[in-house]
């Protein structure tokens, strides 16, 4: 690296700029181009209502993908997030309905119990995943495949597939569909999660250890990192963030749902991968994941506004995921390694 700094001149500067650009990747550029093009050609794109919709729906994906990223960084996988979302939704809604009968009128308490129960269900799944991966050394793919099946079955068994109604109004209209300072509440929640994860990644031991574990598990263990603890922690945080997503969605929908968008797991992994998170572990930054989740949702919204058939949209999304990663990969190969 140092030899470039010594060489003063326009060439070195532009080279450094290029290198900086390569580090951030082409994602921000594509995102800006997309937004500008849409703003110019489809006026409705910048209407308040549309911006709100995009921001709200991307908030959920941002939270979910941030958790997925943590697990990917330690070299794992979490296929169960898409099942934890409905599980937390159902558990929290049922708890609130039960608490509404047990302690009528105590809205705050009812909501608190519901939220705790929802987060608790997420934590349980996360612990199951983390413990199996860290201690039984079972492949993350299989463990989370199993826990996905378990969580889905639980959510359906609890509700028979029927939506759970009867949550406090404050939870639905106050939080889920509410606006604080003109913005949907989910946006604040997502911002909070991103800030927290960003802080963890940049300023805490845990953040550095997660990268170390994903980079080289053996080396991390030998250097005295309590790898097992941190592995369990990564899976637990991922599932809790999935539960948070479930709670926010429940508040917006207004009922506990055992069946929520089956594509969530794959979308969260797609967002992480587009953001340059390596599936081999050790690489990934939450700010990029946020951009990637925004990009995916803005793209979907743009295609909706352009009245592209949703079935064709799926084909586009598939191609974009592959091409995004392919271009990233080619770019990396051309940048000299030093």
């Amino acid at each position: 690296m140092t030899h470039i700094v010594d060489r003063r001149g326009a060439g070195a500067v532009s080279q450094r700029a290029l290198r900086g650009y390569a580090r951030v990747g082409f994602l921000p550029t594509v995102l800006i181009v997309l937004v500008v093009a849409m703003a110019l050609f489809v006026p409705r794109f910048l209407s308040v209502q549309n911006v709100f919709n995009v921001l709200r729906s991307s908030s959920y994906l941002v939270i979910l993908s941030a958790g997925q990223m943590l697990v990917l960084i330690v070299g794992g996988f979490d296929l169960s997030v898409g099942a934890v979302v409905p599980l937390a939704s159902v558990v929290s809604a049922m708890t609130m309905v039960w608490a509404g009968g047990a302690v009528p009128g105590q809205t705050g308490l009812i909501i608190a119990l519901g939220v705790l129960a929802g987060l608790g269900s997420g934590l349980l799944v996360g612990l199951l995943n983390g413990l199996c991966v860290a201690f039984l050394k079972v492949s993350a793919f299989i463990v989370t495949l199993g826990s996905m099946s378990i969580a889905t079955g639980m959510a359906l068994l609890l509700t028979n597939g029927i939506p759970v109604y009867g949550m406090p109004k404050a939870f639905v209209s106050g939080f889920g569909r509410g606006l604080w300072f003109q913005l949907p509440t989910a946006v604040y929640l997502a911002a909070l999660v991103v800030a927290a994860v960003w802080f963890i990644q940049n300023f805490t031991k845990m953040g550095r250890y997660l990268y170390a574990i994903g980079g080289n598990l053996h080396a991390a263990t030998v250097s005295g990192v309590r790898t097992k603890t941190y592995l369990v922690l990564a899976y637990a945080v991922c599932s809790i963030l999935a539960a948070v997503t479930g709670l926010a969605l429940t508040a917006e929908i207004g009922s506990g749902q055992a069946v929520i968008n089956g594509q969530l797991t794959l979308e969260s992994i797609a967002a992480a991968v587009i953001a340059g998170v390596s599936l081999k572990g050790g690489v990934g930054r939450v700010e990029m994941v946020t951009l990637a989740a925004l990009f995916l949702l803005i793209l979907t919204n743009a295609m909706d506004l352009l009245r592209i058939d949703p079935r064709i949209q799926t084909i586009f999304l598939g191609l974009i995921v592959v091409l995004a990663v392919a271009i990233e990969e080619m770019g990396k190969r051309r940048t000299p390694v030093d």
Binding site: I269, V273, Q313, G318, V325
Partner: peptide
């Protein structure tokens, strides 16, 4: 990575 590629073709085939 095969995960990414086949995730893409999953969506393409679905569509």
């Amino acid at each position: 990575n095969p995960f990414v590629v086949t995730l893409g073709s999953l969506n393409i085939c679905l569509g």
